[in-house]
Design a protein around this nucleic acid. Structure first.
Lengths: 146, 146
DNA sequence: AGTAACAATGTGCGTGCGCACGCACTTTCC
DNA sequence: GGAAAGTGCGTGCGCACGCACATTGTTACT
């Protein structure tokens, strides 16, 4: 357990704490879109058929399944998502992104990406960015166990 | 704005979402100590005089100043911290770690470090760990501006 | 077929969290 | 010296979040 290991963890906590509110504000101010909404819309948009069940959404998105269900409620109220039941399993409920939702997502994307670059990746080299991505993805790949 | 940049950001969000609850649970189960308490105690313990004003605590710790004030309330109730007023500025209130608090912190430290290694750094190489720490610290050093 | 285990949701509830505000005190400026 | 602006703190409030549970539907087993 080296010292840089704890430094790597502490830095991750601090960067998260500092940047998430900043980027969320930026997105909300310029697009009226909370970060959570963006995340959910992005996952729905890139999913096969542009739809996902609540369970799938909870797994793939950053939010929990429970939270995803409520965020979808809000997105439905805003007209960005519609619920549609799965004829093959009536327990499950699909969330489908609407055209309006895709429109808003396309409008927000450049703002989001610019914020990421401005607050985050512009402060590191391309090589560092690659290493960070690779290392963190390995952590994720390890899964809940171990 | 390359693709690995967004990957580095997305991975950070996911790692945070996955690991923080896990480590918090571990710490709470084995030491009865929430992660927030640990963070605050750690900062207090390594501060000059083992004490910090609320404003300083809010800046140095991961939590906000407001939150820090409430966490200190809990820590006082638990006997790990005591409040002490600053004679030179009667507005401010110092939080001082008690001997009991230091004891609990020393007991929790190995558990915390082991959890970080187990869930986080054991999945990357030492070189990656160094790069991650260095890159994220540069992001932090950039500060709230820009 | 019938029933018992299992799975996918949605929701009540408690907790964590930060913002906006007011109070007490300090500093600055006249 | 006195008023006005500024600073540090604690707290009321509302939102975000996840857990535990109830509900509804599915599957497996006899």
């Amino acid at each position: 357990m080296s010292d840089t290991d704890t430094a790597a963890w502490a830095a991750l906590l601090r960067v998260h704490a500092a940047l998430v509110p900043r980027i969320d504000r930026e997105l909300q101010r310029r697009c009226g879109l909370p970060l959570t909404w963006y995340d959910v819309l992005l996952e729905l948009n890139s999913a096969p058929g542009r739809r996902l069940s609540m369970g799938e959404l909870g797994e793939v998105a950053v939010v929990s399944r429970t939270r995803a269900s409520r965020v979808v409620d809000q997105l439905v109220a805003a007209g960005f998502v519609s619920r549609s039941s799965n004829p093959e399993d009536k327990r499950s409920a699909y969330a489908v992104i609407t055209d309006e939702g895709r429109k808003v997502l396309r409008a927000a994307a450049p703002v989001y990406l610019a914020a990421i670059e401005r607050f985050y990746t512009s402060h590191m080299s391309a090589a560092e960015s690659r290493t960070v991505a690779a290392a963190l993805e390995k952590v994720l790949a390890a899964g809940p166990h171990t």
